[in-house]
């Protein structure tokens, strides 16, 4: 995949009072922290490169019957595969004609941020706070995020609220693929961002970014409704800043190796 050099790079700034700090003393690496071979380590966000998109299978368990479930071949997230194959890495900089698509996209994005319809889908506890965010006390409708559509065909934002289990992962990916572009995903709660308190379980997915691209993470167990609204406002900001580049998202663990 082509890497855009023009894209602003977010550098981790380790400064204190204008003076760069000395590199922190690293704790001695334990055996448990070392990947056993180089390819075992997760791909991480380096300073100057984008994450390679990782195509993750939709199906999250192995069928016992080899002929069941499409012959055991897990279906892939197709739009990401297309993105990888095709040369669609448009940086929206192509001379004087630049103005047309960028401005049009900007205007459209301004419209979109004021009309984000979430999908009415809650998985677990966080769904309560998601509902609470839509009710009288914390009124999400003020920001144009209200009509919770029951059908994924009409939704814009998938708020994954609650623990994602391996059994639910398939249906959730299906919901995501049923939503029309442009679409966004908000991971609400600790369980969806990283596995949270059920990280060690045999039946949960440790973070939905393993199976679908995520735009905004809202941590908390569960986050308060204000937290969700703040996350959605961050999403609005993100949509404006991405300026029409909404499909360019990647699937894969966002947790670096050292964490």
């Amino acid at each position: 995949m082509e890497v855009n050099d023009d894209r602003p790079v977010i550098q981790p700034s380790v400064t204190s009072g204008g003076q760069p700090l000395e590199p922190r003393h690293e704790p001695p690496a334990m055996a448990a922290d070392q990947p056993s071979s180089p390819q075992d380590g997760l791909s991480t966000t380096r300073d100057d490169s984008l994450v390679e998109p990782i195509i993750v299978a939709n199906s999250t368990w192995t069928p016992a019957d080899p002929t069941a479930y499409n012959g055991g071949q897990p279906p892939q997230i197709t739009h990401l595969r297309e993105l990888e194959l095709g040369d669609k890495s448009d940086n929206a900089r192509w001379g004087a004609l630049d103005i047309i698509p960028t401005k049009a996209d900007y205007v459209l994005d301004l419209i979109r941020i004021n009309s984000l319809w979430p999908l009415l889908s809650g998985l677990a506890c966080c769904a309560m706070e998601m509902m609470s965010a839509a009710t009288s006390r914390n009124d999400m409708d003020r920001f144009g995020m209200f009509p919770f559509r029951a059908s994924p065909r009409q939704a814009d934002v998938l708020i994954v609220a609650g623990t994602l289990t391996t059994k639910m992962a398939g249906p959730l990916i299906r919901l995501w693929e049923q939503m029309p572009e442009p679409k966004w995903c908000v991971a609400m709660g600790d369980c969806t961002t990283s596995g949270g308190r059920y990280k060690r379980s045999y039946a949960t997915v440790e973070g939905i970014d393993r199976i679908m691209p995520v735009d905004v993470y809202v941590p908390g167990c569960p986050p308060r409704p204000e937290g969700l609204i703040y996350g959605m406002m961050k999403l609005q900001q993100l949509i404006k800043e991405r300026r029409g580049h909404w499909p360019e998202r990647h699937v894969g663990p966002t947790v670096p190796v050292g964490v």
Binding site: N114, T135, S136, D139, D141, R142, F143, G144, F146
Partner: peptide, 9 residues
């Protein structure tokens, strides 16, 4: 519903 309704657009 005792809400405010859309008021940002």
């Amino acid at each position: 519903n005792l809400r405010v309704g859309p008021n940002r657009q």
